[in-house]
Design a protein around this nucleic acid. Sequence first.
RNA 1: GCGCCCGUAGCUCAGUGGAUAGAGCACCGGCCUCCGGAGCCGGGAGCGGAGGUUCGAUUCCUCUCGGGCGUACCA
Length: 559
Amino acid sequence: MNPIQSLRDSLYKTIVAALEQAKKDNLLEFSTIPDFVIEVPREKEHGDFATNVAMLLARQAKMAPRKIAEIIVAQIPVNQAGFKKVDIAGAGFINFYLDNSWLYGIPALVQTMGNEYGQNQKQNIKVQVEFVSANPTGNLHMGNARGGAIGDSLANILSLAGYDVEREFYINDAGNQIEIFAESLEARYLQLTGHDVMFPENGYAGQDVIDTVKGIISRYGKDLVVLSSQERRQRLVEEALQEKVTYIAKTLQEFGINYDVWFSEKTLHQAGKIDEVIAELERKEFVYEKDGALWFKSTRFGDEKDEVLKRANGLPTYFAADIAYHKDKFERGFDWVINVWGADHHGHIARMKGAIQALGYNPDQLDILLMQLVRLLRSGNVVRMSKRTGTTVSLDELIEEVGQDAARFIFVMRNPDSHLDFDMELAKQQNQDNPVYYVQYAHARICSIFRQAEAAGISLPPVEQINTALLKEQEEMDLLRKIADFPEEINVAARTMAPHRIARYVLDLAGLFHSFYNHHRVINDNQALQGARLLLMSVTCTTIKNALSVLGVSAPEQM
RNA sequence: GCGCCCGUAGCUCAGUGGAUAGAGCACCGGCCUCCGGAGCCGGGAGCGGAGGUUCGAUUCCUCUCGGGCGUACCA
């Protein structure tokens, strides 16, 4: 249930009916109704809704926009319930002013829906969000953390917007990186079992690899020394990958993220899916051979240069595996596929979409949500990558140090397109500088009101006994209006893949609550008004909680 | 060089082609005998630059100047 959308839909019908009536009466000439918008004006003085339809019709109707607006307005039954007045303003805007009856219905709606408030109608559209998909060869870093926060929040938003959502993690457990990983593991294993071997030049030099190998040695001792190198590497890499993937899953779970599907790249190799997809592209004549390698004609799809699918050594590239992976996604019947990628992968987008198109799928059904990189700050100084661990601060260290709530809120607060400076000190501060507490404090404060009320023997009356029309103060109306916005805000955030909108939203909502709180008392001598305000507090509390929940942030009752 | 992203208030950032561009922080001044002062109220300044499309541009296009990131038979 989305009150704003309902109002807009009904206004849309009213306007279209007015246009058609005017045309029928030969007052207005046009062949097609333009693609007009019904927006919520920035300025309250401009009404509850406004439309630009008159301006857009000017050319077709060969008439001044204000004149057209007058004709349209004359056809609108302003006296009908819900309307206060309809105005023409500015260059030809038609402004609609509604009476407050719709707003007074909001609390009952929220109260009834409870945890479900924000949920839009189901649309039967399958969408997949793939995010983090970190290499299982190391720790999760700050970039993965941002991707996790954005991806998971977006998935929550899409779900509330009415989509059927699946969360997926793509495990890169095959290919070149894994070969190097295996070599690194083997070198460490042999070194730690007393052999003097060289560590590979591009190997994984991090302490975590050594720790992993130590763990393997504690389980299997020196048993692997006698194996052939190939067998030894295979055993080591299997053990290590299992450990790493388990660790990644556990860390992400502690970050509030639970996946529906963990997809292994290796299974694509084993099932021959990669050769299959290369063969398909060859059949469709998007592949050629040069210098012993097989190339995909990605320039045909606007890419800067063609890309190698299969190297001269006969091994497929990561790109080839990724094509097979995306083909698999589309074969699974998703209507919309979203990948959350770090900005360093942007060069991959054009060729991936090209490959999708080459395979006969619609590249518009694939969206890449690109997020800019994260810089970690401590006391205003950039923290450099550590050679020892391969990360600045790993996600589990981050959760340990600043907590899930602050970390998730800060990561998701910014537009993914913006660079993010993550300030450890700020994230840890439990004061006004830290936005997450501002919101949580609002929630805790409302809970406190209810505790106070209860102590005084006051409880929230049944909704049907409450007269919400007693809420007349500006702060009360502003709160109601903001609460009514939540489902539509979810819709817009889903459509534009912009989870940061929900963070802004809940900050605004908390601000409106604090303002109300400082101006008016909930518990007071006027029983009827007290009941209405208790209900207002209850639904404010619910909305804050639901919005925070979307972001993976808790709503504490006390702080 | 070429490609993608970003240049908005002193700082960090919002801003689905609309009317007078908004928050937070910082700074100054107010507000608790009263439901949690982790709060509220008030106070200044800004769309990097130049063209173009449009009735209307912070938003779209071109050029330009800054910053970040790519530009592997790595992933």
